[in-house]
């Protein structure tokens, strides 16, 4: 599996300049506003990982990988792990930069608010990954984009309709007591979400014929 993880990283090395530009943008923005763009780099991980799916599909890599020892078993796993590793690396870079720049600007470090922002960024990114990857394995990169749009639009529509009948605000207020436990609840949600997403992707991939 390590070989397959390396493959995805090697495919991304062409994006090095883009990453440097994004890093520069983040540093500039962080000097202005500190934390508001904390999601930028982790979010870009998922976006750039999508290009690896496109290359895989274009070169019919999936048929080839299924001919390798444990290829089918490890292919999906490697994609998820590569993405998570990439997200972790960018989160670490973002955190370090935020601490340095934040301290430079205010001479203080607000660990609590920084932790919440970073956690929010990881949640948003892994949520995107968890929804996108099974859709890509099922429909391919191009169709998955449309599928995601339909799903998001569908949810918004259903939410809009339901909001007429359900008082969401009072539900949210009712759940306010959870706020103190968010730093525990969110990581659990992230792990469960990724696990379910991975299992769905794996099931789709195992059934698929390339």
């Amino acid at each position: 599996m390590i070989g397959l993880i390396k493959k995805d990283f090697l495919m991304l090395k062409g994006n090095f300049k883009t990453w440097l530009i994004l890093l520069f943008v983040y540093i500039v923005m962080a000097f202005q506003e500190s934390m508001s763009l904390a999601f930028l780099l982790p979010f870009m991980c998922v976006v750039t990982m999508l290009s690896t799916f496109s290359y895989d599909s274009y070169n019919k890599w999936d048929a080839y990988v299924c001919s390798l020892p444990d290829g089918r078993k490890n292919s999906v796993r490697a994609k998820y792990i590569a993405t998570i590793l990439l997200i972790l690396v960018t989160v670490i870079i973002t955190t370090i930069l935020t601490i340095i720049i934040g301290y430079y600007r205010t001479k203080t470090i607000n660990l609590e608010s920084m932790g919440e922002t970073i956690m929010g960024a990881i949640f948003a990114t892994t949520l995107l990954q968890s929804i996108m990857y099974p859709a890509i394995y099922k429909f391919g990169v191009e169709k998955a984009r449309i599928a995601i749009f339909i799903v998001v639009f569908g949810f918004a529509l259903i939410g809009g309709v339901l909001s007429k009948y359900i008082d969401f605000e009072s539900i949210i207020q009712g759940l306010a007591f959870l706020e103190n436990y968010m730093m525990i609840i969110i990581p659990i949600i992230i792990v469960v979400m990724l696990y379910i997403s991975y299992k769905i992707s794996e099931a789709i991939y195992n059934r698929k014929e390339y």
Binding site: L10, Y55, D56, N59
Partner: peptide
């Protein structure tokens, strides 16, 4: 059906030695 064309032949060695 083969390796993504964005890779270099030397990358194939890096990948396959772990496969």
């Amino acid at each position: 059906m083969f390796f993504p064309e964005i890779l270099l032949p030397k990358d194939i060695n890096t990948i396959m030695k772990d496969v």
